[in-house]
């Protein structure tokens, strides 16, 4: 099943033109929300906000501030959307927003190109362990490109 009339939710981890949701759904109305709770609770400085704002100006997005989940759902409602498309996020705060959006409106997450794709989950714990597994795979694409 495909979404017929989705909107795109752009978040702080994907403010680039390679955002897979923007790439795959160029016609869909897109939204970025400044997360007021996060800004207040973490005392995010104006420098950071200015930087995020300038990144947004490059993208075809509507900019809002406030409660992220409420703003995304209201935006979806306004466009009569049958779903929300977004990109993967690592930050737990963004994952929680995604889960809350998904309770009211189907959320699809698209992943961009990874830095390295490993055949199985690497062992973390210490960098050296991870890098022993990842480094040779990262360099495979050097050979391929060069």
């Amino acid at each position: 099943m495909d979404l017929k009339q989705p909107i795109v939710w752009v978040h702080e981890e994907s403010l680039g033109s390679t955002n897979p949701a923007l790439e795959d759904y160029p016609e869909a109305p897109a939204l970025f929300v400044f997360d007021q709770d996060w800004i207040d609770s973490k005392h995010i400085s104006r420098k950071r906000l200015g930087f995020l704002y300038e990144c947004c100006l490059d993208l075809p997005v509507t900019i809002r501030k406030g409660n992220v989940v409420a703003e995304v759902l209201a935006f979806a409602n306004r466009y009569g959307a049958d779903g929300v498309i977004s990109s993967g996020a690592v930050e737990p705060r963004l994952q929680r927003h995604g889960a809350a959006i998904n309770r009211d409106c189907p959320l699809w997450i698209l992943d961009g190109e990874p830095f390295v794709e490993l055949p199985r989950a690497p062992r973390l714990g210490r960098f050296s362990r991870y890098w022993r597994e990842a480094e040779p795979v990262v360099w495979e694409s050097y050979k391929a490109s060069g």
Binding site: S17, I44, R46
Partner: peptide, 24 residues
């Protein structure tokens, strides 16, 4: 716009510019 929208945020804007052009 930022001062109006985020009166609680402190400090000035950074000389480091956001956006694709600056990144490139």
């Amino acid at each position: 716009m930022l001062e109006q929208e985020f009166p609680g945020a402190s400090g000035a804007i950074s000389p480091i510019r956001g956006g694709r052009q600056a990144a490139e």
